[in-house]
Amino acid sequence: MPQITVDYSADLAGDFDRPGFAKALHEATVEIAAAKPPACKSRFRPTEDIVVGPETEGHAHVHIHIALLAGRTDEVKARLTQAALELLRTHLKPAEGLTLHASAEVRDLDPSYAKFES
């Protein structure tokens, strides 16, 4: 915890500083949501195709999913969502001609969440 997943258009790969973004988002998650630094985990999933309305070209997307153990207030979740989007602006410089659709959400992990380390 937290589990962070970032889905992004594959054509953004060269313009997206993913390690820098993850590090900065982990720091923000610790500060805003009182997470422990070693507990922050991020994974990035490139997506090949995106369709926006009737268009299949000229668009790119990034969606940031942040899942936390229950107990954070809606205000904390909203602050973390906004911080994630602001950090994205500083770590992603999309190519000209692409319209970027960026979004983020913070949600509670299901009570069934479990983990182990070995």
Rank of each mutant, 00 (worst) to 15 (best):
I64W: 00
L98N: 04
L68H: 05
Y8F: 15
D7G: 02
I64C: 02
A24N: 00
A70C: 02
A78F: 15
A24D: 02
Y113I: 12
L80P: 06
F116Q: 15
L109M: 12
H65W: 14
R72L: 13
T5K: 09
V51E: 00
R79T: 10
I50E: 05
R89K: 13
T90G: 09
C40A: 14
P46G: 12
I64R: 01
H101R: 08
A39K: 12
G71Y: 03
D15V: 11
D108K: 06
F21L: 01
H63P: 00
L87H: 05
V106S: 02
H61C: 03
D110K: 06
G71R: 00
V6N: 13
D11N: 09
R79W: 04
E75F: 08
A33V: 13
V62K: 09
L12G: 08
D15T: 10
K93Y: 07
C40T: 02
A83Y: 10
A33H: 05
E48I: 11
E117R: 10
D15A: 14
R79Y: 14
A22E: 13
L92G: 06
A22D: 05
E27Y: 11
A70Q: 09
S42Y: 06
R43A: 10
K77A: 12
P37W: 03
A83R: 05
L80H: 08
G20V: 07
F44P: 03
R43V: 14
L25V: 05
S112G: 10
T5Y: 00
F116N: 11
F21K: 04
A60H: 11
F116K: 13
E57P: 08
G20Y: 07
A13K: 01
S112R: 07
I50A: 05
R89N: 14
D74Y: 03
P94D: 03
K77N: 12
A95H: 08
L88V: 05
I32E: 00
A67Y: 02
